[in-house]
């Protein structure tokens, strides 16, 4: 199977997997027999579903131990994938058993088939929301943030005069800006980009500044004794030191950017965008499409986060936290 420090007995491993398979089997069996039913299931059947869920969950908890020490990221992901699968299958079974109307919560299978049917439009929406609004705003906000931090770290006056505001401003709920900015800039994508830029700006300033200034006095003295210029100090000492801090802010910013763009669209949108789609469809009980849009938004959010994390590893591979 996988590398294990202390190999448990084969029989126990088999037992764990048996639990898992049994639990999934129960759930899938119920879904199969209830596929075309339109009545709520009996109490015994509902109990069966919960039993299946518990068995599968217990199975995962035990099986997961076998994956603890693997280094291969794909194999290491197996327990997480199983967890998602059991939650989705249980949700499907429960929603069918209780006959929850699709206008309240759609079944996962319904969401998937809808997702497939509307994927083209959702991709267009995603382009508007992610590329035009979130990404443009993110780049502008992060860029300005880093520049501001550089200036602030260089000039004591700015540090004293601006930084306290930046720290305070990062505790402001930026969503409250959204309606004002949409009214001010207009309903096109630019207004959302501005919202996103402001949202990511303050965390980037505060974090970058910390990275630029929290350098060891020893290294700084060394630089000085070599008569290194200000620019050289920044190039070889302060900036490299700040990178992990900057990346922390950049990673945090990815989620903030997505939320900012989507919330912004709630206050007016030009006929496209994930937020527009979610708002329109939630108003008409099309929750299968709402969930599809959520899936798209989360997949992009996860991909974006991981992209930044990958960049971080490439650029700061030398740093302690990766050694």
């Amino acid at each position: 199977m996988v590398v294990q420090p202390s190999k448990p007995a084969l029989s126990r491993v088999l037992l764990d997997w048996m639990l898992l398979v049994l639990g999934f089997g129960l759930l899938l069996w119920f879904i199969a027999i209830w596929w075309n039913q339109s009545e709520p299931a009996s109490d015994a059947q509902k109990l069966l579903i919960w039993g299946g869920f518990l068995l599968a969950a217990l199975g995962i908890a035990r099986v997961a131990n076998q994956f603890v020490n693997t280094t291969n990221p794909v194999i290491g992901f197996t327990p997480a994938a199983l967890t998602l699968l059991v939650v989705v299958v249980t949700a499907e079974a429960l929603l069918r058993a209780y006959q929850v109307p699709p206008g309240l919560i759609p079944t996962p299978s319904r969401v998937l088939s809808t997702f497939f049917a509307v994927r083209d439009v959702l991709l267009q929406d995603a382009f508007q929301t992610v590329v035009l609004e979130a990404l443009v705003g993110y780049l502008i906000g992060c860029g300005l943030g880093v520049i501001t931090a550089l200036l602030v770290s260089r000039y004591v006056f700015l540090e004293r005069g601006l930084l306290p505001y930046a720290t305070v401003f990062s505790s402001i709920p930026i969503v409250a800006l959204a309606p004002v900015l949409v009214k001010m800039v207009g309903i096109d994508w630019q207004s959302k980009a501005v919202i996103v830029a402001i949202t990511v700006f303050f965390p980037v300033v505060v974090n970058t500044f910390r990275g630029l200034t929290e350098v060891s006095p020893l290294s700084l003295d060394l630089m000085r004794s070599y008569a290194a210029s200000e620019v050289q100090q920044y190039r070889w000492l302060r900036l490299p030191n700040a990178l992990p801090f900057i990346f922390n802010a950049l990673k945090l910013g990815t989620t903030l950017a997505m939320i900012g763009a989507i919330v912004g669209e709630f206050f007016g949108a030009n006929g496209q965008g994930l937020g527009f789609r979610i708002q329109i469809e939630a108003g008409r009980f099309g929750f299968d499409i709402v969930w599809s849009a959520i899936i798209v938004a989360s997949l992009i959010g996860i991909a974006w986060y991981n992209l930044v994390a990958w960049l971080e590893r490439r650029l700061t591979g030398w740093h302690v936290s990766f050694r």
């Binding site: 995962i60 997961a64 603890v68 996860i302």
Partner: peptide
């Protein structure tokens, strides 16, 4: 570690879901 392996990725993913939706 088993808990971490099975749930942590989804805890992180939960944050990418726009709460407004």
């Amino acid at each position: 570690r088993a808990f971490e392996r099975s749930l942590l990725p989804w805890i992180v993913a939960s944050q990418t879901i726009p709460v407004i939706a």
